[in-house]
């Protein structure tokens, strides 16, 4: 029986209780008042030591209030007992990433933005790790939910010719050492490629590793081993890592 069925049964029970209570009280009230009639000794202005009885309508209203309150509590109890339970060991956060190369960027707000140039609403930062230079943009108003929280572009600054690139992105919750990671290869080493990351209330750390390949032998070994995907940047000629802590984003109250 579903939740709705239980609610209907509860309402029928509540109405039955209300009806029975009222009918029984009316009978008791009638019996009592006729008993008083037989006893006599009534009269205007006389103080009586007899205990006063509530009127049937008062009993009806009080029962109605009691039954309504009881039914409401039971509905809350049912809702609590039969609702789906979330696993409170994990916070649910929504993280969305999308890679925009120079071609796919044409259809976005970031069409005319080249890495390193100012983007309204974002602060621009750069960092160098080996031969990889990261340019990243941080949304000044990350909780508006309109624009991506973080834009990342990576560029190989070494002198060699590279034929392909790949990335690995890792996300770890606060206090978590190893989080989830995913990645891919096969991209052109285009510095205009941007990765847009949108998060809601995720306060963990993002690790973004970018690698470039000088030969075409890459991106073939993404098989799962022992429940984990192998490193897509294995064999990269150069790679660099950029980390970003989402906990440093401005809060709602600032």
């Amino acid at each position: 029986m579903g939740f709705a069925g239980r609610i209907i049964i509860l309402l029928i029970l509540a109405l039955s209780v209300l009806f029975l209570t009222t009918v029984i009280y009316l009978r008791v009230y009638k019996k009592r008042i006729n008993q008083r009639l037989r006893e006599g000794d009534f009269g205007e202005g006389e103080e009586t030591s007899k205990r006063k009885m509530l009127t049937p309508i008062a009993v009806f209203v009080l029962t109605l209030l009691g039954v309504t309150a009881g039914a409401y509590m039971l509905i809350l109890l049912f809702a609590w007992l039969f609702s789906a339970k979330s696993d409170t060991r994990y916070e649910t956060s929504h993280i969305h990433t999308v890679t925009l190369d120079s071609e796919s960027r044409k259809d976005t707000l970031f069409e005319d933005c080249l890495p390193g140039e100012e983007i309204k609403g974002y602060t621009v930062h750069t960092m160098q790790d080996g031969d990889i230079r990261f340019t990243y943009y941080v949304n000044k108003y990350p909780y508006s939910g309109i624009l991506p929280t973080l834009l990342i572009s990576a560029e190989y600054t070494g002198g060699k010719d590279m034929v392909g690139s790949g990335y690995r992105m890792g996300l770890s919750a606060p206090g978590e050492k190893e989080g989830t990671s995913f990645g891919g290869t096969g991209l052109d080493p285009d510095p205009q490629t941007m990765t847009a990351v949108t998060v809601d209330d995720f306060a963990g750390v993002l690790t973004y590793t970018y690698g470039v390949f000088d030969s075409g032998d890459y991106g073939t070994d993404n098989t799962e081993q022992d429940g984990r995907v192998s490193d897509p940047l294995e064999g990269a000629a150069a790679k660099g890592t950029f980390t970003f802590d989402f906990d440093t984003l401005p809060s709602y109250l600032q």
Binding site: T22, L26, Y29, K30, I33, N34, L37, G40, F42, T55, P56, I57, F60
Partner: peptide, 16 residues
């Protein structure tokens, strides 16, 4: 006359 009342029937709507 109260002495001539044979029986009282209460109603829910505040009436006897």
């Amino acid at each position: 006359s109260a002495g001539h009342i044979k029986s009282i029937k209460p109603a829910l709507t505040q009436k006897f």
